[in-house]
Design a binder for these strands. Structure first.
Length: 577
DNA sequence: GCCGTTTTCGGCCCGACTGTTTTCAGTCG
C-alpha cells in the first residue's frame, strides 16, 4: 500500500503547489507520478530497492529521489515543508465549484480561510466582501457550491473504491487464517457511489486474523472486535470487515450485501412461510438458525430464484423471482464492442492502432472511433479535413483486419443552439455518430431539451453521449428533463449511452431503466482515452444490470451484422421523416 | 517537475466563453 500512500502525498503536494502558484508543468509532473504509482503493479519498496524507480515513466531525478526518501523514512521533506506553509485543509477549498487555486490562495492569505468550514462561516458572515472582486453574489455562489459539496460528502465513486476493495480481498485471501473472502454491501450491488467497502471473510481463527492484519500493516486502524473489524486504508477508505465462521459464510454474505429494503421484503415473506432469516441462516419457527450452503439455497428455501445483487433494491425483484421472470441480465462477456472511444487524433492518449489492438485483445468484434469535433478545442477536436483523413486511414486499416471491424465515427458536439458541429454531408459519411453536449451546461431545462431536439433532427445521429453530463462527485447533472429526452430518443429511434467511465456513469441506472422501458436501446460505452480505459466497461455493465437490462437491449452486445442493420434502418427511417 | 535531445534547455494540449469582480479566475474535456 506504500504505492498509494506516496501517490496520495504527491497528489496533496500537487494541490498545494497549485495554490502556491507553482509552474503548471511541475504540478502536472507530480500528478503524473501519482497516476503511475496508482497503476504500478509492483511494490514501491521493491521498485526502489532494485533501482528500477528511475525507469518508471514520470520519475526523473527529483521524484525518484523523493520515492527513495519515502521508502527510507516514510515521509517526504518537501511535503512537510509545504504543509508548514499551507494547512492540508486548504485543499478542501479547491473542491468548491467556483474556487480554483488562485482564489484558494487569496482566501487563505487575505481572509485567513483555511478550511471548508471556515469558508462557509466567512461567507455567511459577509466577511468575504472586502476581498477584491467579491460581492454578495459571489458569497452566495460559494455557499451554494459548499452545499452541493456537502450533499455528496462521504461518498466515493465505485471506480475509486472497487479496485481498493479487490486489492484488500486479494491480500486477505493470501492469509493462512482466511478461507474465503467476498465483497459485499452496496459495492457488490454496483451502486455508483458508496460510503465504504464491506467485505465478508470466512475464518476459523478470527483472533489470529486480526493479529495478522495489525502485523502486516494492512490498515491504519483496526477496530477492537473480531466479528466486525472496521479498517481505514491508507487512502482513507473505510472498510467494514465482517469475520464469520466458514459455515455462516453464505448467509453472512447475503446479509451484508443488502439492501436494507430488499431484506425487509424478504423477511416479510419468510415470516409468512413460518421462517426467519438472520446472518446465521434460516430458522424455522422458534428453532435455531440452520446455515445455508449458498445464496441460491437461501432463496430456494423461500421459493425464489436467486436474485442478482444488482437487483436487490426492494423493488419488484421478489415478484419476478417468484414467477421465474427475472431478466437475464447483460454481462461483461455479452459485450461485442465499444461504440465510443478516442484516439490521439483528438485528446486520446494512444494511437488509433493501439486502441484498435486493445479492443481486439478484449475479444471484441468491433469498435467505433469517436474523436471530438472542432468545438471542443481543449480536446483538439478534428477539423473536417482531419476527420476525412481519419476516415481514409480507418478504411485502409479495416482492409488489413480479419474478423474485426473498425467503425468510423465521431463524438460530434451539440453546440449551444442545438446545431451539430459538423454538417450533415460529413456525418453521412460515417458509420456511427455519437452526439454530446460539452458546453453551456447550465442552460434551463426547456433550452436543453430543445437543444437535443434540434440535434436529433439530423438523421445521422445514432446515439446521445453522456446524456446528463454529470461528473460523479464533481458536477451535477444538467437540468435536462430526462423523461422527455427518453421520449424524444424513443420517437427518433436513437440510442442513449450508458457512459461507463467511472467518473461519469451517465445515464445512471435509474434513467437507463426508464429508457429501456420506453423501448430506447442503450449503448454501454467506455469513452476510453487510453487502452486501459476499455476495462471501464465493467462499470457500465454494473449500471446496466442495476437497470435490469438484458443483452438484447444493449446495442453493443449485438453481433456486428445486427448492429449495422439497426444503424441502417434507423437512418433510413429518420430520413423519411 | 519530466523528457528528449541540437547533452542544456525549451517544450510540455491551445483557447473561447462566462460571470460579474470592470480585469480575470474559473470552466469546459
Amino acid at each position: 500500500m506504500q504505492n498509494l500512500q506516496l501517490a496520495a502525498i504527491f497528489r496533496e503536494m500537487a494541490d498545494l503547489l497549485e495554490v502556491k502558484g507553482e509552474s503548471v508543468y511541475k504540478i502536472r509532473a507530480y500528478r503524473r507520478a501519482a497516476e503511475q504509482l496508482e497503476q504500478l503493479p509492483e511494490e514501491l519498496g521493491e521498485v526502489v530497492r532494485s533501482g528500477e524507480i528511475d525507469r518508471v515513466p514520470g520519475f526523473g531525478k527529483a521524484l525518484a529521489a523523493k520515492a527513495r526518501e519515502f521508502v527510507a523514512t516514510g515521509q517526504v521533506a518537501d511535503h512537510q515543508a509545504l504543509l508548514s506553509e499551507y494547512p492540508a485543509e486548504v485543499r478542501e477549498l479547491l473542491r468548491v465549484p467556483g474556487v480554483g487555486p488562485k482564489l484558494a490562495d487569496r482566501l487563505f492569505r487575505e481572509a485567513g480561510v483555511a478550511s471548508l468550514e471556515a469558508l462557509e462561516a466567512a461567507a455567511r458572515e459577509g466577511r468575504l466582501r472586502g476581498l477584491r472582486g467579491f460581492g454578495p453574489r459571489a458569497e452566495e455562489r460559494i455557499l451554494a457550491g459548499i452545499e452541493a459539496l456537502r450533499r455528496q460528502e462521504g461518498r466515493r465513486g465505485i471506480g475509486e473504491v472497487l479496485p481498493q476493495a479487490r486489492w484488500l480481498a486479494a491480500q486477505l485471501e493470501a492469509l493462512p487464517q482466511v478461507e474465503r473472502v467476498a465483497i459485499a454491501g452496496s459495492l457488490r450491488r454496483w451502486k455508483e457511489e458508496v460510503k465504504d467497502a464491506d467485505l465478508v471473510v470466512a475464518s476459523g481463527d478470527a483472533e489470529g486474523l486480526v493479529a495478522a492484519l495489525r502485523e502486516r500493516g494492512l490498515a491504519q486502524e483496526v477496530g477492537g472486535g473480531t466479528a466486525r473489524v472496521p479498517l481505514v486504508l491508507p487512502t482513507g477508505l473505510k472498510v467494514d470487515l465482517r469475520v464469520v465462521a466458514p459455515i455462516h459464510f453464505a448467509s453472512a454474505l447475503h446479509h451484508f450485501t443488502g439492501s436494507k429494503e430488499h431484506h425487509l421484503l424478504l423477511r416479510e415473506r419468510a415470516r409468512r412461510l413460518g421462517l426467519s432469516i438472520s446472518e446465521y441462516g434460516i430458522a424455522q419457527g422458534d428453532g435455531p438458525p440452520e446455515s445455508v450452503a449458498s445464496e441460491e439455497a437461501l432463496y430456494q428455501r423461500l421459493g425464489l430464484a436467486w436474485i442478482p445483487p444488482e437487483l436487490r433494491e426492494g423493488q419488484e425483484e421478489l415478484e419476478l423471482a417468484e414467477q421465474g421472470a427475472l431478466p437475464r441480465l447483460v454481462t461483461l462477456e455479452d459485450l461485442r464492442g465499444d461504440l465510443h472511444i478516442h484516439t490521439d487524433w483528438s485528446d486520446g492518449r494512444a494511437s488509433l492502432e493501439a486502441m484498435v489492438e486493445a479492443a481486439r485483445a478484449r475479444g471484441y468484434a468491433y469498435v467505433a472511433i469517436c474523436d471530438h469535433s472542432p468545438a471542443v478545442r481543449v480536446a483538439g477536436g478534428l477539423e473536417p479535413d482531419r476527420l476525412l483523413a481519419q476516415v481514409e486511414r480507418i478504411r485502409r486499416l479495416n482492409q488489413e483486419l480479419d474478423g474485426f471491424q473498425v467503425l468510423v465515427g465521431t463524438e460530434v458536439d451539440i453546440l449551444a443552439d442545438g446545431q451539430l458541429d459538423y454538417p450533415d454531408e460529413l456525418l453521412a459519411q460515417l458509420d456511427f455518430v455519437v452526439a454530446s453536449i460539452h458546453s453551456h451546461m447550465s442552460q434551463d431545462p426547456e433550452t436543453l431539451l430543445e437543444r437535443y431536439r434540434k440535434a436529433l433532427a439530423s438523421p445521422w445521429v445514432d446515439c446521445i453521449g453522456h446524456p446528463t453530463g454529470r461528473l460523479l462527485g464533481r458536477r451535477e447533472a444538467m437540468a435536462v428533463p430526462v423523461e422527455a429526452l427518453v421520449e424524444l430518443a424513443a420517437e427518433r429511434g436513437v440510442a442513449l449511452e450508458i457512459n461507463a467511465s467511472p467518473e461519469r456513469l451517465d445515464l445512471d441506472s435509474r434513467w437507463a431503466r426508464l429508457a429501456a422501458r420506453a423501448g430506447v436501446p442503450l449503448a454501454i460505452n467506455t469513452d476510453a482515452h487510453h487502452p486501459d480505459h476499455l476495462a471501464f466497461a465493467e462499470y457500465g455493465v454494473g449500471v446496466a444490470r442495476r437497470a435490469g437490462l438484458t443483452a438484447d437491449q444493449v446495442i453493443n452486445a449485438w453481433p456486428p451484422e445486427r448492429l449495422l442493420a439497426w444503424i441502417r434502418s434507423r437512418r433510413d427511417r429518420a430520413r423519411r421523416r
